[in-house]
Design a protein around this nucleic acid. Structure first.
Lengths: 237, 237
DNA sequence: AAGCCATCGTGTACGTTGTACACGCCATGT
DNA sequence: ACATGGCGTGTACAACGTACACGATGGCTT
């Protein structure tokens, strides 16, 4: 497994808008946000940067996987967190999850990419260090603390991924309202509703009361933190 | 978005081991389990089935995405659940999560694939219907029930994905013991441990006490269910 | 029992992808 | 001013997904 973080970053030429890792990853982010990860090809990134050949990029990022690593780490960089946790672990982890979700909503491809590559970038490390710091001082052994961090961030990723899938379905058809979405998906959905084996799923589909996604996210997060507070951090408040 | 479930399944010729969706997806599963999703190419699946050309498959699965859909649904089919939930929602969701994780450990590519395609297969539907049934009768509105199901299964997927990543790293180098793993990753890891910005991460790396993954999984799940019990299902037991 | 036809398996071919390799060119240090 | 190390480039190739048109072969009709 070859990681970008092992390669030295080339210097770039002085004068003029030459290449750099930052310019490359910025272009890749724009393409992925607009057209999905599949659209992030070496050639397209290169031409977006005014380079006539994909090979220019290889000096900077080593290959396609390198671009992916940098993209993932750029998302971690967008999760803004105060310099130091507040000392209230619950408030801190809530902030982490909320801002994490916000960043992941901007970059709907995050979950899919993150499962192809390990995340060892500097911003991911900083992110995890901050989270561990929020939990420090309660006598948890490191493995347990890390496990809690994983659960909370995993929840944020999972939730954001659900939202991303729905939103991607939505604008893959070019619809706006819920009614239009249901209309275009009628061919699949009708079969499910008509099938007597799925009464509760059908009820969920047909009775879909409009939910506030922010409130739902917060509720789920509170459930998770309640459980952690009661079962793992009971004696530490 | 073109789904496999819309295409009629061809009949196959009588006599002799001809093609079928089941044979195709079985071959794809074997390849993916052994060599990862990237190794699941049309040509390789075709030759694994004795077919001399990849084009044979198109009649059965419509294209690559169709194979992916079928693979995902096959994993759902492997999550064995009793015909009916027991009536104890907590025990039922625990069973769902535990057996889900077990299936996902056999197929480490599940999470990565599932984020590329929506899951509308019959086994996924059956799975979700069962989960909703486990929560039925407590007066939850459908959206909340679905959200709980998503949280619980999302936790299982997320946890299994973490395990999968570690295990994949492990056998991408061909190591067996934890010590060997740490040795081969020393180049990256040493830089992290040496960096003064990551004291708690370093502590986690160096002090990694051997944890029981089953216990850790169960603990996290219990946290989640505790919170759900207290905050959403408080009055229903 | 014989023939028709829908349907399945196949071969060929094309556009696109990631990337190995070798070559010019420029900025920089002496 | 000159040499040099590093950067941008062009060419090329293997492998991928899949469109299309063609033979073969089974099952149904008569």
């Amino acid at each position: 497994m070859e990681l970008v973080w092992d390669l030295p970053e080339p210097a770039g030429r002085s004068g003029g808008p030459t290449l750099s890792r930052e310019r490359i990853v910025r272009a890749a982010l724009e393409i992925a946000d607009a057209d999905g990860t599949a659209a992030v090809t070496m050639r397209r990134v290169a031409t977006a940067l005014g380079s006539s050949t994909p090979m220019s990029l290889y000096r900077y990022v080593g290959g396609k996987d390198g671009i992916h690593d940098l993209m993932l780490d750029a998302v971690y960089a967008e999760i803004d967190l105060p310099a130091e946790p507040s000392g209230d672990w619950r408030a801190d982890l809530t902030l982490l999850a909320r801002n994490g979700r916000r960043a992941l909503r901007r970059h709907r491809w995050f979950a899919a990419l993150s499962h192809h590559r390990p995340t060892f970038g500097p911003n991911a490390l900083r992110h995890n260090e901050w989270a561990l710091r929020a939990l420090d001082g309660h006598g948890l052994d490191p493995a347990t603390a890390m496990s809690i961090v994983g659960m909370v961030f995993g929840y944020a990723v999972s939730y954001a991924q659900g939202e991303a899938e729905e939103s991607r379905m939505r604008d893959s058809i070019g619809v706006r309202t819920d009614a239009e979405l249901r209309d275009s998906a009628r061919e699949y959905v009708d079969r499910i509703v008509a099938d007597p084996r799925y009464p509760l799923l059908s009820r969920w589909i047909t009775e879909a009361a409009p939910v506030d996604p922010d409130a739902q996210f917060a509720l789920g997060l509170d459930c998770l933190l309640d459980g952690i507070a009661g079962r793992v951090l009971a004696d530490a408040g």
